[in-house]
Structure formats: structure tokens, C-alpha cells
Amino acid sequence: MVWPFGGSKNDTESSAPAPVTSNEPLVVDRAPTTSDSSAAPSGSPELPTFLSSEAFDVSKLHPLAGLDKGLEALDLEDDALSDLPGSKGFLPSRGWSDDLCYGSGTMYMGGLALGGAYGFAEGLRQSPANAPAKLKLNSVLNAVTRRGPYLGNSAGILAISYNVFNGLFDAYRSYHDAYNSVGAGIITGILFRSTKGIKPMAISGALMGTAAGVWSYLTSAI
């Protein structure tokens, strides 16, 4: 049986030296050997030019390969935008988990920043005017760490609840519209004040429903 890939020792020893015994010299510089150019294929590239880096210039590859623009995160398959009907606003989203993470993150950071700024001012105001810097710093830090997390936590809780209910309604009705948003806002507001009694629940639900409606109108109008 003849082994097609040149396995046995006899084959390699008889075939490998064959190019060396021919008259064609294996040199890179071909200028002096133009006389016997008929023996060598004229268009064959020499070894150094073939392996040089410009052979792999991506701009010379097929344009449809798109290798010259690098890897773009938005081209990846996982980053397909949500195809839920009616959910196309001016904010791109890949689904309810995106809404949840970015919504609660924005609200939490915004609440933290607002509450922190209020606490900063409060701490400066509460400390005596002639207090040393260390006391002032401590007063400011105390006020910031009291006000900031409280407002941030409340805002983040509201955003989580709103986005969870909104995602549930979207999944249940298989499309998105302003009614889903407003309903999620009303339920969120009612839940937020659910231990305070009927009247605060109604006020809070109405406020959150209005806010959700305004937000829904803004995202779809822009």
C-alpha cells in the first residue's frame, strides 16, 4: 500500500534531495539567473517577500470580509436589539434585563448624586462657621452618607419595581405601549406606599403613573 503523505523513510530520502540536485540554484537573488528563467516559473514569489508583513495587509483582503474596521461590539450577535413591537424608543434596548439594569442603575446613581449633593450642603450648613476643617469634613461626610443612600435606594427600588412590572406586562401582552408603562407605574407607586394607608397609596400611584406616562410619551416622541 502506498502511503499518500510520505510516511516511510525510503520515500523521503529519495524524493527530498531531488530539488537540490537540479541545476536551478535555491537562492533568493534571481537577478543573475535570468538566462534560465524558462526553468523557473517567472511569477512565483520569493520566500522573503511572501512572508513579509505586507502580504497580510488587511486592506488587500476581500472587502466583504470587513477585516479592516476591526471588531465592533455592536456587530456581535448577542447585541441584537429587542424586536418587541412598540418598544422602539430613542433609547436602544436589548430586552427587559437591559431596561432593568440601565434603568435602576441610572436612577440609583442619580438619586445617590442628588442626595449626596443635598447632604453636602446640609453638612456644610449644620457645622459651625468657626469649626476646624476635620470637624467640618466629618459633618459633611455624615450628612452625605445619610442623605445619598436613602434617596438612591428609594429611587432604585422604584426603578426596579417599574421595570419588572413593565417587562411582565410586555411579555404577557407581547407588545409594548404606553398603557403598560402607566400600569407598571401605578402598581409601583401603590406598592411603594402600601404600608401607609389607602390615601398615600392612591397619591403615590397617581404620581408614579403620571411620571411613567410622561416618560413613555417622551421616549416615543423623540
Partner: peptide
């Protein structure tokens, strides 16, 4: 991604 991480970690902690 900082916003995403804030929100994701906050949601995980709340739940």
C-alpha cells in the same frame, strides 16, 4: 458599563 453594573448589582442586592 458602569451604569449597567450599578443597576445590576443593586437589583441583585434588592432581590
Amino acid at each position: 458599563v458602569i451604569v449597567n453594573d450599578f443597576g445590576g448589582a443593586f437589583s441583585m442586592g434588592v432581590i
